[in-house]
Amino acid sequence: MTDAPEIHITGKQLLAMQPGQVHALYKLRVDIFVNEQQTTFAEIDDADADPGTHHILAYVHPGHAPDFRWGTPDPGSPLKLVGTARVFGPPEEQQIGRLCVHQDFRGYGFARQIVENSLEVARGRAAALDPTLQKAVVKIDAQVATEPFYASYGFEPVGDAFTVEGIEHQEMHLTLD
């Protein structure tokens, strides 16, 4: 696509976020996972607030025009949260989850940038492991429709597909080098 908005990616622990950031994070995830995908599971869970969980936050600047070309800014911020993911779990068995991009911002490659950033975080967390004794694995419970996307990073299916809230998923693993 042409004329793509510029994305700014950062990451934080939930407890280090401002209230407006937490609100934007949860609103985006609920809008996508609960409303758009019509699921009823508890979107907000204890993994979010765990001190070891790193939230990837992808923002765009809505622009300076009155019509806010790229949407309305989030409360208390000149930026708009358009994508997110989280990395959690012990360094030897991390998980990437809750990857989502606002529907108005799909097709710009933002999901790819978020996954790349998530894998950087996972590699950084795994750097403390002894590579001769321990392997670092990153897991994803991918929606089956997104399996080729994750396979492009080297993730491989593990076990049989399973259903969560009517959506078929496949556990996938990537061993970090």
Score class of each variant (00 low, 15 high):
Pro19Trp: 03
Phe149Ser: 07
Thr40Ser: 14
Leu15His: 14
Glu156Asn: 08
Arg106Tyr: 09
Lys12Thr: 10
Asp50Gln: 12
Gln103Phe: 07
Leu57Asp: 08
Lys12Gln: 15
Ala151Lys: 05
Gly97Ala: 09
Thr146Tyr: 12
Gly124Ile: 03
Pro78His: 10
Gly159Met: 10
Ala65Trp: 11
Glu116Gly: 12
Pro62Asn: 01
Pro78Gly: 01
Glu171Met: 14
Ala47Thr: 15
Thr163Gln: 10
Pro66Lys: 03
Met1Glu: 10
Gln13Ile: 06
Val87Ser: 01
Phe41Ile: 09
Gly154Cys: 10
Ala49Gln: 13
Arg112Tyr: 06
Ala4Leu: 10
Gln95Glu: 15
Ile32Leu: 14
Val34Ser: 02
Gly11Pro: 00
Ile114Leu: 05
Ala47Asn: 14
Leu25Met: 12
Pro19Ile: 10
Gly63Tyr: 00
Pro131Ile: 10
Ala122Asp: 11
Gln170Met: 14
Met1His: 13
Ala4Val: 06
Trp70Arg: 01
Met1Val: 12
Lys139Val: 07
Ala151Glu: 11
Leu25Gln: 00
Gly71Gln: 04
Glu156Phe: 02
Leu57Gln: 11
Lys27Asn: 12
Asp141Lys: 09
Asp74Ile: 02
Phe33Trp: 02
Asn35Ser: 07
Val144Lys: 14
Leu81Tyr: 04
Phe162Asp: 13
Thr53Asn: 04
Glu43Arg: 01
Val82His: 01
Ala4Met: 12
Asp50Ser: 13
Tyr153Gln: 09
Tyr108Met: 05
Phe155Ala: 09
Pro5Trp: 13
Tyr26Gly: 06
Asp160Gly: 03
Leu81Ala: 05
Asp160Tyr: 05
Pro91Lys: 00
Gly154Pro: 07
Gln143Ser: 11
Arg106Glu: 04
Glu147Asp: 06
Ala42Glu: 03
Ile167Cys: 11
Ala142Met: 04
Pro75Ile: 09
Pro90Gly: 03
Pro19Ala: 09
His55Met: 11
Tyr26Ile: 10
Leu174Phe: 10
Ala58His: 06
Ile9Lys: 02
Gly109Arg: 08
Thr40Val: 12
Arg106Asp: 05
Arg98Ser: 08
